[in-house]
Nucleic acid binder design. Structure first.
Lengths: 199, 199, 199, 199
DNA sequence: TATGAATGAGTGTTCATTCAT
DNA sequence: TATGAATGAACACTCATTCAT
């Protein structure tokens, strides 16, 4: 709130501007002057706060990843503590409105593609990738043997990313409710089959 | 073989060179002189054959899509005609070695991301996207009611793309056998669950 | 003369333009667009022919050094073959009109200063530096014992560079005739004193 | 010592920092933030004390010139009052350790080159240039006719600058003792030859 | 008085495209 | 048909300078 926070505010404004600009023209087509204009600042300010273009982009990806993390954490906090509810919450978080907006999906996909060619981005991407897997795995282990839990976690993680990926192509026509339903069915099958086996 | 085919051969060489170069430096980092060098031709030749850079890239994406189509068609032709075998063949085709090489995965992901910002690429991407869905849907309909078949097709398509997407991050560590196993399990559950329900 | 020489001609035009521009604004203040404008070409052509700015500057320094070498060689070829005449010719070459023009002197001094901070330029500078010394030393050895010849060569080389350096500050007021006379006197003293000692 | 002197102290610190920085990266490569960092101050302080970058550089050159002047004055004060001893002292001053350090030589040469393109720097350079000449001329006149004294002064001044200039290229390999010896020999010849001629 | 965040003009360099040969 | 030299607009980045605090 005080003076001290102004630098942090400007960093955030710049990151937001970068995020928006990526949504408009893509990561490949972004220019610093576009970002600066979007943020209402000068071009030189980027190197002042982020060193160079890559620094800004890295910070922007961190922000995108952080937002997803927070969204999922919120959903889980509001959900019942049992395994299935927690897994459903993870799915819900990944398909929350903030994560399925046109801009977010474009940025996501751009960063994913870019991480194939940049060590820094790839590291970040992997952290996020593993987090989804281990969050799921942790819950599945409460109900399934380790080996099955691992396979289930991989399957659900893939299904979430796959639904999301295919949804990105649909643009406005992405049926989030249907995506969640399909993912939930898969989870139920996986857990339910085990229950049946137990009984 | 004849003179007439030389132009076509050069087109293919150029496309191959573009494909390899994308694998090395990414779609964002590619330059025409790199492609020309890789193909052993002059820089001016691209506009001669493809109009401009975008034309070459579009043709390259068409090639990538076409290769996947051919690979899946091969697998299906060799598989038994029943629904489950055909679905398994579609899965196998999507995870065939030619489709899971480092170069292919990078090109794929780059094109997917780029299709968010280019109408031409997006159109191509959508055609492919729908083909996977309708191929799966067609088979599921032989065993499931339409509504369920559609959900199953969406789920399997998402799982294939999701496994593939997450595998792209793993680089060399992508366990193709495990990916296929998870996808097949999901198909079996979907078909089998229905069978169980029917009986 | 033929087509083949056009690239070489453009290289020379660019080097000339760089030389002239250095004379106008100095090595520190030179920009590629100035050079390109002076040469009547586009800015991109520099990297085409010289890789980058440093490449052009290095080539320009080589040209300046080469011109001095040629000028001195001409003077020596026209002079009598005896030691004193050859030494006088070396002095004359260093103070020839082409070497004492405002532009040449500015370029020279700029390159000398820059060679303190650039390995490539320093290497070039040293080659030239040693050439003056060894040319002189070679002649002095015909008349003096080795140790004395070396000192004499160092002295005359220093005097030439010193007169030239101080002349650079004078601008148009540089009295070339006087400079040559002082240098010749020093040579005569050095050689003559030895003669006197011998007799 | 008092408060009043603090501004003067900061000026000197800034000039020292500029001098050191020039030694490291050259006059062409210097930036105000480097200087400010070296001095442990803020970037804005330069305009506060020196108006702009050129002001700082001009002050730095003045300092370099002043140091040489003081060094020569010290040497002369400690030398015998006769002409030859005074001339030797001038030579010694010019080759004193403080004047032949790597940093000093680089700064000197950079300033000399820059003075070709800046009126302010050139004026300063000329003052120093003439001072060396008139100091020498003054002493030579005590022993030689005016015309000869002038030539001798020009010759010795050139020899000093030339030895120093060539020494700058040698870096650590600059043999100061040899340089002084060569210069002294030249002075002795000039004075002694005249003596001999008189007798 | 002193700071350092902010500006924005100017730089070297890259590269898709053109076109004379 | 094919070349590759040439163009020039666009880019990221630097840095002297300003000014609110």
């Amino acid at each position: 709130m005080l003076r001290k926070n102004i630098p942090e505010q400007r960093r955030e404004q710049l990151i937001s501007a970068a995020f928006e600009t990526i949504g408009e023209v893509g990561l490949a087509g972004i220019t610093l002057s576009q970002v600066a204009k979007e943020a209402g600042m000068s071009t030189g300010i980027v190197s002042h706060y982020f060193g160079d273009k890559d620094g800004l982009l890295l910070a922007t990806m961190r922000k995108v990843l952080g937002d997803l993390h927070d969204t999922v954490a919120d959903c889980r906090a509001r959900a019942a503590p049992d395994a299935q509810a927690q897994i459903f919450a993870i799915i819900d978080g990944n398909f929350a409105p903030s994560q399925t907006s046109e801009t977010t999906m474009r940025a996501w996909l751009d960063f994913w593609a870019a991480s194939m060619h940049s060590a820094d981005l790839r590291r970040l991407q992997r952290i996020n990738d593993r987090r989804l897997y281990s969050n799921l795995c942790c819950q599945f282990k409460r109900r399934l043997p380790v080996a099955q839990a691992r396979k289930a976690a991989m399957g659900v993680a893939a299904m979430i990313d796959g639904l999301w990926l295919r949804g990105s192509l649909a643009g406005g026509g992405f049926d989030i409710g249907l995506a969640c339903a399909i993912a939930r069915d898969y989870v139920r099958q996986t857990l339910g089959g085990e229950n049946a086996a137990r009984s």
